[in-house]
């Protein structure tokens, strides 16, 4: 199968951004004061650095997304092949079992308060 159209499309899309930035680089005025290069923090001197530790909730969100995403991706082929299938009752039983386990997993996450952001 041909990837060529995709390559052409991405190269053109990429060059749009590149060209625009280049033009503004050529046309734009150059900054004259050093202060402009400081870290922006609403005009104050910055407090601490950006590479600090952030909340574990973000990690939890990402990994739970990964797990549920994999489960839902499993359902894509199921949904696409159901109508042409010859054994619909079996397919339905598979689906219901799958969803049952998924919902049990979801309820576990919910009841363990992992989804709570307010503290």
């Amino acid at each position: 199968m041909s990837l060529f159209p995709f390559v052409v499309f991405s190269v053109i899309s990429l060059s749009i951004g590149l060209v625009l930035i280049l033009i503004s680089n050529i046309l734009g005025t150059k900054p004259k004061t050093k202060r402009l290069h400081d870290i922006y923090e609403s005009g104050m001197d910055p407090v601490g650095s950006a590479t600090k530790r952030y909340d574990i909730k973000f990690y939890l969100t990402a990994i739970l997304f990964l797990l549920f995403d994999v489960e839902i991706v499993f359902l894509f082929p199921w949904a696409l092949s159901y109508q042409s299938s010859s054994i619909k009752p079996l397919m339905l039983a598979e689906f219901v079992f799958f969803m049952f386990v998924l919902i049990v997993g979801y309820l576990f996450v919910l009841l363990s308060k992992s989804l709570d952001w307010e503290e």
């Binding site: 899309s13 930035i21 503004s24 734009g28 005025t29 150059k30 900054p31 290069h37 400081d38 870290i39």
Partner: peptide, 26 residues
């Protein structure tokens, strides 16, 4: 936007700072 003063702050990771908006649009 084209004629605006172009500021690349001194504390950024320059290469990634410049390609980030291009990648974003892509």
């Amino acid at each position: 936007f084209l004629f605006k003063e172009e500021v690349v702050p001194s504390h950024v990771k320059k290469f990634f700072y410049i390609i980030a908006p291009i990648l974003s649009l892509l």
